[in-house]
């Protein structure tokens, strides 16, 4: 297939949009790993909870209610999860953490399937986000008729705003300063009299809340069925690994990279299937700590 300028533009947009979902999920994943040192395999299941809540509220009361209710609710669920289960595993080996979070993910997935069924639940896009954008009207270099769904552009925008907000929180606030210090040396921070555990609880809640935002805006794109969480977990986890464990900037970079790679290999099934694994192998061979990873972390 010849790569015309139109095709190139569409592939770039698709790559950005695919990357957006990965980034939103990977952001929570890497935030939790970076601060708590927990590899949270239940993160895909948090996204799953978010899309089921979002679709239920959206279909019953409308999108605005879903947007107002779901992310804070996910924050609460995240905090409860951290207090009730995850904190008991901070001092346990990584394998125990992986087993318990993975097990939790399966339990959540099967529970949701039990309640909602295995079939897809249609997630209607709100009127203001429905329809297509006529790209050729905005980008004069495109020839003829080039369109893209409006909602997917909104998803990219939401992703950018969320990333910016998280960066601002970590770099411009006192809370962020403590968290970043905790990421470096939690023990020293505790010696200085900071209740780091309470802040870590908030971070876990924050990670879950980002999954909530991803669910509200990503639900109509990824669709709502019980397989979605696990399907997104593997690429998102690889995004964290490629970007560098615990690195927010790395997660963003790797998310976009993976999205682009998947978009541009779409016509070729074999390449499309293996591309993210291939990138992971190459990156880890060349740079074991990941693209923007800190020295010594999972190297």
């Amino acid at each position: 297939m010849d790569m015309t300028l139109n095709a190139f533009t569409l592939s770039i947009l698709t790559g950005l949009q695919l990357g957006s979902i990965y980034v939103l999920i990977a952001l929570g994943l890497t935030l939790i790993f970076g601060t708590l040192g927990v590899v949270n395999f239940a993160h895909g299941a948090l996204y799953l909870i978010a899309i089921y809540l979002a679709v239920s509220i959206n279909n019953a009361f409308g999108f605005t209610y879903a947007l107002i209710i779901v992310p804070p609710l996910l924050f609460v669920i995240g905090v409860l999860l951290e207090r009730g289960l995850i904190q008991r595993f901070y001092d346990r080996p990584h394998t125990d953490q992986i087993l318990v979070t993975f097990g939790l993910a399966i339990v959540i997935q099967e529970l949701l399937k039990w309640v909602f069924g295995a079939n897809n639940i249609p997630f209607a896009i709100p009127g203001w986000g429905n329809g297509i954008l006529f790209l050729h009207e905005y980008l004069p270099f495109l020839e003829g008729f080039v369109v893209y769904p409006k909602w997917r552009m909104i998803l990219v925008a939401v992703s950018i705003v969320t990333v910016a907000a998280v960066f601002a929180l970590l770099h411009l606030t006192r809370f962020g300063l403590v968290i970043r210090a905790g990421m470096r040396d939690a023990e020293m921070l505790q010696f200085l009299g900071v209740n780091i555990n309470r802040r870590f609880m908030v971070v876990f809640g924050l990670g879950a809340m980002i999954a909530g935002i991803a669910g509200v805006f990503g639900g109509p794109v990824t669709q709502v069925s019980p397989e979605v969480g696990m399907g997104l977990l593997v690429p998102s986890f690889l995004v964290v690994v490629i970007g560098g464990m615990g690195s927010l900037g790395g997660a963003v970079l790797a998310g976009v990279l993976i999205g682009m790679a998947q978009s541009f290999t779409a016509p070729y099934i074999n390449a499309n299937t293996i591309i993210i694994y291939l990138i992971t192998v190459v990156v880890l061979l060349v740079r074991p700590r990941g693209l923007l990873g800190s020295k010594g972390v999972f190297e």
Partner: peptide, 17 residues
């Protein structure tokens, strides 16, 4: 398309084009 695909946008872009 891989069986586990949930987002078909990259393939649909090719169709559009």
């Amino acid at each position: 398309t891989p069986l586990k695909t949930t987002d078909f946008s990259s393939y649909l872009s090719q169709v559009l084009n």
